[in-house]
Nucleic acid binder design. Sequence first.
DNA 1: TCAATAAAGGATAATTTTGTCCTATTTATT
DNA 2: AATAAATAGGACAAAATTATCCTTTATTGA
Lengths: 144, 144
Amino acid sequence: MFSKACEYGIRAAVYVALQSLDGRRVSVNEIAEEIDSPIAFTAKILQQLSRSKVIHSVKGPTGGFELDRTEMDTVKISTIVHAIDGDDIYVGCGLGLKECNAQKPCPLHDKFVDIRNDLKNMLENTSLYELATGLEVGLTYLKR
Amino acid sequence: MFSKACEYGIRAAVYVALQSLDGRRVSVNEIAEEIDSPIAFTAKILQQLSRSKVIHSVKGPTGGFELDRTEMDTVKISTIVHAIDGDDIYVGCGLGLKECNAQKPCPLHDKFVDIRNDLKNMLENTSLYELATGLEVGLTYLKR
DNA sequence: TCAATAAAGGATAATTTTGTCCTATTTATT
DNA sequence: AATAAATAGGACAAAATTATCCTTTATTGA
């Protein structure tokens, strides 16, 4: 479904959001530790998210990653998926055809579009804030 | 969503089903040509589908791949996905957690399960026959 | 029996994705 | 100013996926 990079990216962003709720800025090392991901690879992904303005990064001592409260509402999971995996999941054909659309559909097109719209809506309507608060109250987990 | 191998596999199987409706057995070369896929790679995938009893293969001159009419109803797209990509798409966590379930869910778990069940149901309720007939009447396409 | 045809299978190559390591840059603190 | 902590970024390595090539096996038909 999502690439590994994207999975780590979502988990990392949710963790950053969670800590930002408490005003804590977090380092790559802490993030990788807390979401159980490879450190250097996670650093690359955070870089990418930072470049695409999904999260903020601050260099130097006391630096790290953070999100402000309004961004947690604005940034949806779809934002992250788009920043890392591009729009394949939203526009690509389920059977890999280059030109597949309502006019010239693949055999699975109509059924696939339905599922994908549900996925798209779900991702577009789920904010980092929503997921971070679920974590905060201990309903959900980011490791293992 | 699906691997390339799986995309080719589904397209190949639908084409085999389509031709089998007319009692025609088809070769790897014809299949690859008609679904616009790499020949040798497609051969590997057909081998895999044949070994897992999704389609029949016949060696020698006049040989090729075929499906009988009852199998086209029995074989669902889920059968093919399972044979090629395994059960990742059905059981894996959306965020890549090793242990993610209702008891210890990832932040996206509940929402993800809903989408995935829809996908699962769609794949389990779509037969090769259904897709082959759509192709036959010119409603759908397997190329480009 | 022989030749030709088609799938099966093994070995290997190319590409993409995932992951690591090291250096550069920025910045807070002393 | 010097040091140390942290992200940024480049180069590279490992693993997985995608793809190709060649040989073997089975089978048909002349």
